[in-house]
Simulated assay, not measured.
Amino acid sequence: MSAPAIRPFTAQFTDAEVADLRMRIAATRFAEKETVSDRSQGPQLATLKELIRYWGEEYDFNRVQTNVNAHPNFITEIDGLDIHFIHVRSKHENALPLIITHGWPGSVIEQLKLIEPLVNPTEHGGDASDAFHVVIPSIPGYGFSGKPTATGWGPKRVARAWAELMGRLGYTRYAAQGGDWGAIITDLMGAQAPEGLVAIHTNMAGVVPSAIDAALAAGQPLPDGTPPLTEDEKDTVAHLKSVYSHVFYAYIMGDRPQALAGIADSPVGLAAFLIDHDAASLELITRSFDGVPEGLTRDDVLDNITLFWLTNTGISSARLYAENKTPFFGVNGVKIPVAVSVFPDELYPAPKTWAEQAYPNLVHYNRLPKGGHFAAWEQPELLVNEVRTGLRSVR
């Protein structure tokens, strides 16, 4: 039996699809202004008005397909579902294959800034020995990948599919990297330890002891018998208490994704939902629409929202939360080498003590000076350096 085909793919949206989006943007009906002076009620009306104005009047709707098509794209069927991926091989000998996974509310748009520095390190401040062959798939239900029509496509199945993809591409030795869902999928790959996977790198490490994680998720005190916490561990607990009190988008998508049908019909509804992931990211995005871009530009933000709209993946992507049976931040039993990068505005700062317990083969741990949850998108240079350094010992 021949191997399943790998088919070239070109991202292309029709004029009619773009015209329909423009019409909907022009017809936006806004809610009234928030009753507070901060972002505690979510994206502020002024931010949404400027986003919609810029989207409708100045944004280049060709950006998404142009930027995606700047790299080789492919589709292959795995376990009955079409999987889209970008695949860029390095010219450097002995480059290490690396599969990089995005999260929610992201897409392959998040990782585009990583490709050239990882593939061509000598042109971006690195050595030839730092080179990677890069594979960036779209999670099922996201972007250009197929949308599951039945239950069962949770993170564990995605992790197995990624191992199948790397084998299908002929890679017998490779590493994996991810943040957000990408971190969870990458962690699960590490736990599954498929043949050929030599190490993982994560910028949202799964290190929280299960009893502590379960108590915090339930809004309960730490369990009796919890060892005294270090200052870093106390800081982590404080962050997680806040996270579990405010990630209502995750609870909604995990329980009632179909109730979000309005984001498939309203551009401003989709935009408001996608930019309200966490407080630090919303602040960063708000600044970009206030004319003070740092890490993310208006175009960056709208590239991702536009991809979600034109592929109609607001609901299909949400179902990953409903499929998930894995704790977001818990320990998954990874035994292979692991590199951990901690960005200060991440949902929680993974303490080194817990990282050492969760990952007995921890080969790299570093706290970065700036950056948040979407590190590949916000601080690509820092993340590239972390990936190079963190995986150097396993080459």
Rank of each mutant, 00 (worst) to 15 (best):
A5W: 02
R7E: 15
T10A: 13
F13D: 10
E17T: 03
E17D: 12
L21C: 11
A26H: 08
T28F: 05
K33A: 15
S37N: 14
S40A: 13
Q44I: 01
Q44N: 04
L45D: 08
L45P: 00
L45C: 00
L45T: 02
E58W: 00
F61W: 15
N62E: 15
R63I: 01
R63T: 12
V64P: 01
V64S: 04
V64M: 07
P72Q: 07
D82I: 03
I83E: 01
H84L: 12
H87W: 14
N94T: 04
A95N: 09
A95Q: 07
I100K: 01
V108A: 09
L114R: 10
E123Q: 15
G125Y: 06
D130M: 04
V134N: 07
V135D: 02
P137R: 06
S138E: 12
P140N: 10
G141N: 07
K147D: 05
T149G: 08
T151W: 00
K156V: 01
R160N: 08
W162T: 03
W162V: 03
M166T: 06
G167K: 13
L169M: 13
G170I: 03
Y171R: 05
Y174N: 07
A175E: 07
I185P: 03
T186L: 04
D187P: 01
Q192L: 15
Q192C: 03
E195Y: 00
G196L: 11
A199C: 10
H201V: 04
T202C: 11
V207D: 01
V208P: 10
Q220W: 03
D224E: 14
T226E: 08
K241R: 15
K241N: 11
S242A: 11
S245N: 09
F248Q: 09
Y251H: 12
I252C: 08
G254A: 08
R256I: 00
Q258L: 14
L260A: 10
G262C: 10
I275R: 00
D276W: 03
L282Q: 08
E283C: 00
E283W: 03
E283V: 07
T286K: 07
S288L: 03
V301P: 00
D303K: 02
N304W: 07
F308H: 13
L310H: 11
T311E: 09
S317P: 10
A322L: 15
V338D: 02
V340F: 13
S341A: 15
P344I: 00
L347A: 04
P349Y: 00
Y365G: 02
Y365P: 04
K370H: 14
W377H: 10
Q379E: 14
N385H: 09
N385G: 15
